[in-house]
């Protein structure tokens, strides 16, 4: 890692230390904890939906600058998006961190979350950057499964 400032940039530092997204939602539809047992990073993600739209999100917990900033910036990026769009963005972010997606046009949809692209140069920190994104993936998967479960129910 030659240039640390590419990872610990202004945006990431600001979000990691003073995030306005670090709070609790009034009535969250989903609350899910994500953790990296080896490093002790722990976040709880709260999500409020409005139909297929992510209406609001917030997080609590503790961890390194990268995990905290990644969570906060993810919230900024996904808030207001519909679920299909959000899933696309999540896939792109994970692809970027794993260096599978490099196309600039494609990365544009990540908005501010593109700030994490250089984390891929720090293999030990990749899991910190991905923690929140895997957690929201879990939440959306859970919602999808609930959806099919209720359809099954109606067919009985």
């Amino acid at each position: 890692m030659d240039n640390l400032d590419e990872v610990y940039n202004e945006l990431i530092m600001e979000h990691s230390m003073n995030s306005y997204n670090k709070k609790h939602l009034d009535k969250a539809d989903y609350s899910e904890m994500g953790h990296n047992p080896n490093c002790g990073d722990e976040i709880t993600l709260e999500v409020k939906l409005d139909g297929d739209k992510i209406k609001d999100m917030a997080f609590s917990g503790h961890g390194c600058a990268i995990s905290q900033a990644s969570t906060s910036i993810m919230i900024d990026t996904l808030k207001g998006k519909d679920i299909k769009e959000a899933k696309e963005i999540i896939k792109t972010f994970i692809g970027m961190i794993k260096r599978e997606i490099k196309d600039e046009e494609e990365l544009k949809k990540l908005e501010d979350a593109i700030a994490f692209r250089n984390v891929s140069n720090m293999p030990a920190r990749v899991k910190c950057a991905l923690l929140a994104w895997h957690t929201i993936e879990d939440i959306l998967d859970k919602r999808e499964n609930e959806g099919t479960a209720s359809i099954d129910c109606c067919h009985k």
Binding site: M1, R125, C128
Partner: peptide
């Protein structure tokens, strides 16, 4: 400051 961030900067 979280120790992982410190360790990454030290590593650099």
């Amino acid at each position: 400051v979280h120790p992982h961030d410190v360790a990454s900067i030290l590593d650099a």
